[in-house]
Each structure stands twice: as C-alpha cells, then as structure tokens.
Design a protein around this nucleic acid. Structure first.
Lengths: 195, 195
DNA sequence: TTGGATACGGAACGCTGCGTATCATAACGC
DNA sequence: GCGTTATGATACGCAGCGTTCCGTATCCAA
C-alpha cells in the first residue's frame, strides 16, 4: 500500500461533481449532459473530472450505483403478500420519489448498447433484486403461501418488468401499481380451477 | 394537391438508405451510428438523407416503425391460453429472429428521454399491443376462461414487460419464455384458494 | 425540343462537445 | 524548504452533426 504523497484529492470537489452531474442529468438527460457544464456548475476544472472518471459513461454509472445502493432487505413480515408488496413498493417509490427515476430514465439508453454501463449494473443491482425476490419467495414456499414450483426468475420479471416498462414507455407509476402486480402474480387471471 | 415538378425522388436511394441504416444500426448501435457511414454504404450523398429525414433520430424511428408494422392480429383459436401464447410468442420471435431485436435494443435508449421517438412509438406500437391483448382477453372473458375483472393494462405489461426487461437487462429470450409467462399470468403462484 | 424545377452524389464548411495537454498555483509529507 | 501531486483555467486536436454549395441528371410543361 503506497503512501499518498503530494496534494490529496479534494473530497469537496468530488462531491460537488457528483451533485452537479446528478442535477444536470435529471435536467437534460444523458445525451445532452455536457461535462463542461458539470465542471462549471461544480466550480471545478474539467481535468479534475477526468482525473476521477475516465468517461462520461463511468461518471453516470457511479451516480446510478450511488442511488441504487440504499438497498433495504425485506424482513419476514409473516405474510408473503405483504413482503412482495413492500418489495415492489420500495422499487416504485425509489423511482418516483428520489432522483433515481430521472437518472435511470436517462441511462436506460445505455444499458442495452453500452456494456461498460450495462454489465456492472446487471452484476450488482439486477442481481440483488433477483436475490431479494428469491429470499421472499423461499419464505413464501416454506410458509405454504406459494406453490413450490414457483419460478424465481419469472416472478422477478413479472414484478419488476412492468415497472420498467412503464418507466420506458410511459404510464402511471402510482403506488397502486404494486398491489395490482402482486395480486395478479399470486392469483392469476384464470377462473378458479382445481389444482 | 400540388403537382410534383422536377426530378422525382429516387425510391432506390430511399430504400438503400433504409437498408444501410438498418445494417449499421444493428452492427454498432444508435450512438455509434454515423450518417456519413450510412450515406457511404448506401452509395448516396449525405444531403439526400437529410432531404428525407430531419435527423438521425427520425430516420431510426422510421426503421423501427417499418419493422414493427407487420403486425398480425390473433385469430380466435378457441383457447385463451393458445391465443396468449401465440401473441407473446410472436413478440419474442420478432425480437429474436428479425432485425427488430437489435434495432429495438439500439433505440430503447431514446424512448424515455426523447419524445420525438418515444411519443410516436407509444401512439402506434404500444397502443396496438394493448388493443390486441384487450381483444384476446375480451374473448377469454366471454369464453369463461378469464375472470371478468381482469385488467387489460396490467395483463399487457405482465406479458410484455418481462420480455423487454430481458431485452434490456439480459436474460434468455427463448421461445419457452412465452408459455411460462402465460401460465403464470393465468394460474398465479399462490397455492389453491377458494374464490 | 427546350427550359424550368427539383433531386442526385460528392465535397467542403461551421459548430459543438469529448477528451488531452499545459499552465501557474495550492496543499500535502518529509 | 522541497519534491510531489492536485487544483482551476485555458487552449487544443479530433470527430460527427447538420448545412451549403457544386455540377449533373431527370422529370414536367410549354
């Protein structure tokens, strides 16, 4: 571990850059986000940004991971429905009540075509979501609430896919959506059949 | 209706531009799509492109609408499950077996933040999908297969959302996915309950 | 047949923004 | 103090968008 010599990097500048970038990303989106403007708003030289992040994409990715990191595990609530609604509700809330929504919207563009952003995001956030759904569902099966053959991956995508679908293609992200999705996932739309 | 005078626009050039743009969009994605390269591959001057499309975005949008237009209504198959599987399967097939997948992937970026692309797409493709699901479900309710209170919008997003989720965030888009989604939407994951 | 109008492929241009380089200066460890 | 590294500022090269011009080609109408 080498000793750091010379002038240390400014934490204040670091944070000012992240704050300015988040604000501007929300205001104008990823494509129209200009690092010159980020530097200006942060009161920082452009080189100071490039000393920390190699590209605009990686700066944006750090923003995204910073916003998705406050991840709260769902405790055992005794009710599978309650746990699923809590899980889905927290996702919807994060997307509508925090800067995550606009930032995610601005970066949706990059996931599919830009592995530098997409791969780390998949490896962390998407993976964490899947695992949390898996934990909740395992409890549900143990509890006797869920069918033992319920598929975790399908369930995750049925719960989260519609949310991102609306984030992408428009549609209300109201808190009502969560219980609707959970209800349908649990009960299905077929008329009662013997199982 | 004014009479067109002078040299008419070349249909060959028009098609060559669309073909070249589709190929390059698939090869390199939207961001790295350069109109200079499109013009070069199409054997066309750049001005000829700008005479037809005001921007890169609108050209890409035309490509997308061209690829999504071969839309086939689902006939009455007598079985709601079969109709839903046919519907979902045709979406998956279009995304995996035709250029639509790469093109859609390349343009996903633009939907959320670029109303010039997002709004027309929502007004046409998304709307058509919803209406087709609505027709199928109406038949299912009439047939007694589906609960009368089934929500068309939720159903559409439960069927289509996961597909686009995988298109965006990775995951197999195998033909098996369709029946899995339909099965879950119909039956749900809860253990049998009286209704 | 001829002339006006429009489109063609090709080339050059201005502009913007990314990422790099270079400055004099500031803040740290020794 | 002295060497080292970071800072804010500014200038720069480069790439790509969208525009403009050119000489030529193709249509319609007179």
């Amino acid at each position: 571990m080498p000793i750091r010599r010379g002038r240390p990097r400014s934490d204040a500048a670091h944070q000012a850059i992240l704050d300015a970038a988040r604000e501007l990303l929300i205001e104008v989106g990823f494509t129209r986000l200009k690092l010159e403007h980020v530097a200006a708003r942060a009161g920082v030289g452009k080189a100071t940004i490039y000393r920390r992040w190699p590209s605009k994409e990686s700066l944006a990715l750090d923003l995204l991971l910073e916003l998705t990191s406050p991840y709260i595990a769902i405790p055992d609530l005794g009710s599978t429905r309650d746990e699923l609604e809590t899980l889905v509700g927290s996702i919807i809330r994060a997307l509508t009540m925090t800067p995550l929504g606009p930032v995610m919207r601005a970066l949706l563009s990059q996931f599919a075509g830009n592995p530098a952003i997409g791969d780390p995001f998949r490896a962390t956030v998407v993976r964490a979501r899947r695992e949390e759904v898996a934990r909740v569902m395992a409890r549900g099966v143990a509890r006797g609430d869920l069918r033992p053959d319920a598929d975790v991956e399908i369930a995750t995508e049925l719960l989260v896919g519609p949310i991102y679908f609306r984030l992408m293609f428009g549609g209300d992200l109201s808190p009502r959506l969560g219980p609707q999705l959970v209800e349908t996932l649990l009960a299905g739309y077929a008329v009662a059949v013997e199982r």
